[in-house]
Amino acid sequence: MTDTPMLQVRNLQMHFPIGGGILDRLRIDARGLRMENPVVHAVNGVSFQIKHGEIMALVGESGCGKSTVAKSIARIYKPTAGKVLVEGEDIAEHDFAAMLPVRAKMQMIFQDPYASLNPRQRVRDIVAEPLLEQTKDAQDRKDVPARIEALLAKVGLNAEHAGRYPHQFSGGQRQRIGIARALSVTPGLIVADEPVSALDVSIQAQILNLMKDLRDEFGLAYLFISHDLSVVHHIADHVGVMYLGFMVENAPRDVLFSRPRHPYTRALLSAAPSIKAKRDVAEIELKGEVPSALDLPSGCCFRTRCPFAWERCAAERPVLQEVGEGQTVACHLIDAPERDFV
């Protein structure tokens, strides 16, 4: 196994220009002024890396940009700026043809296990499609049916399921099909965008355990997108917290859950359901709305909702800085211990 990380993301940015027509009303900013050439700042300079065999989770409220990060890495979107290195190869500027060999290294599991499967294809054809695209040798193609049967068995499905259509399966079974399709080209990295959020809780546990077992067996690395902190605590090795397109905290799982340093991380943990009579960390309640990604606040993006904000927060954008134990935080409180809530 190489020392080169499976995935490195450096200063990733993804901005979406807003056109005219029915969207013209979005050109008005928070001050009531008309914006020229408005842009949705969905992802703003996000950086992290994932080692071989590591599970990295991205968490945050809806609209924080975590799914946009996933789709930019998978090249569903072409990044506005930044680098995306898969085993050292920068794919940020790759065209369709250049991406084909990269698809053998990186696959994606989607949130909706029904919408992501072609309803007109049988399971054997769904699983075989990426495999046939990457397999050009005639002799290897003859082995495809046997490989499909082995893949279905690996994810807990029977050989007889290969001839059925997606609508004949439950949600959990459909997600197993999606996992089998992702595994078909033996990737090193799987980008999983909310892969269990549409499933019942009992089925979620089965899929999560399956993904962990496959990680252990094949040495897979995962980028796992989720808003459910209990799911993240169960599966992740490392956790990145996003707010309004920025990475505000990044730490090993146990460090982040036991010693969160950013107020937003503390607020997320406070809002998560818990069966404990007393939480491990003091609670923070957020008030107000998330600012518009069309018109980002000056300074810290979180200051408009942060109960600890002060003058510096409005004047200067914080950057991620190391605070120990592999934990990085983008917050001015780190430099002002007299104000720190920790």
Rank of each mutant, 00 (worst) to 15 (best):
Phe224His: 12
Ile126Trp: 09
Gln168Asn: 12
Ala81Val: 02
Pro130Ile: 06
Ala221Leu: 02
Phe341Gly: 05
Leu183Ser: 02
Arg122Gly: 09
Met247Lys: 03
Val84Leu: 14
Gly240Gln: 00
Glu283Trp: 00
Ala57Glu: 01
Leu333Ser: 12
Pro187Trp: 08
Ser184Cys: 05
Ala128Phe: 13
Glu285Tyr: 07
Val241Asp: 03
Leu296Lys: 07
His41Lys: 15
Glu316Val: 11
Pro101Phe: 05
Asp213Phe: 00
His167Gly: 07
Glu133Ala: 15
Trp310Val: 06
Val323Ala: 06
Val329Ile: 11
Asp200Ala: 12
Leu151Ser: 06
Arg75Leu: 13
His234Glu: 14
Arg253Asp: 01
Ala315Arg: 13
Tyr114Met: 10
Val84Cys: 10
Arg27Phe: 12
His167Val: 11
Arg317Val: 11
Ile76Pro: 08
Ser62Ile: 07
Asn37Cys: 01
Asn37Met: 02
Met106Thr: 12
Val232Ser: 09
Val46Ala: 10
Gln121Pro: 00
Gly245Trp: 10
Asp237Glu: 06
Lys212Gly: 01
Leu223Lys: 02
Ile275Asp: 04
Pro119Phe: 09
Gln13Pro: 00
Arg215Gly: 06
Asp295Val: 03
Glu54Gly: 07
Ala272Asp: 03
Ala330Glu: 01
Ala162Phe: 11
Ile22Gly: 00
Ala104Pro: 00
Ala272Thr: 15
Arg259Phe: 00
Ile55Leu: 04
His161Cys: 14
Met242Val: 04
Cys313Ile: 07
Arg25Ser: 09
Val232Met: 04
Gln8Asn: 06
Ala92Gln: 05
Val144Gln: 11
Arg253Ser: 02
Arg253Gln: 07
Val329Ser: 03
Gly65Lys: 08
Pro113Leu: 06
Glu89Met: 12
Pro113Arg: 04
Thr68Glu: 00
Gln173Phe: 12
Ser197Ala: 12
Ile22Cys: 01
Ala128Asp: 13
Ala192Val: 07
Asn209Gln: 09
Glu285Leu: 09
Val290Asn: 09
Tyr222Val: 13
Arg261Tyr: 03
Trp310Asp: 14
Pro273Asn: 04
His94Arg: 12
Ile334Glu: 10
Leu320Asp: 07
Ser292Arg: 02
Gly21Ala: 05
Val144Ile: 15
Arg312Asn: 07
Ala115Gln: 10
Ala293Ser: 15
Gln175Tyr: 03
Asn44Gln: 14
Arg303Thr: 08
Ala146Glu: 14
Phe246Leu: 02
Ile50Tyr: 01
Tyr264His: 06
Cys313Arg: 12
Thr4Tyr: 00
Ser270Phe: 07
Phe96Glu: 13
Phe16Gln: 10
Phe169Pro: 02
Ala104Arg: 15
Pro166Trp: 02
Arg174His: 05
Met6Asp: 01
Met6Cys: 13
Gly219Leu: 01
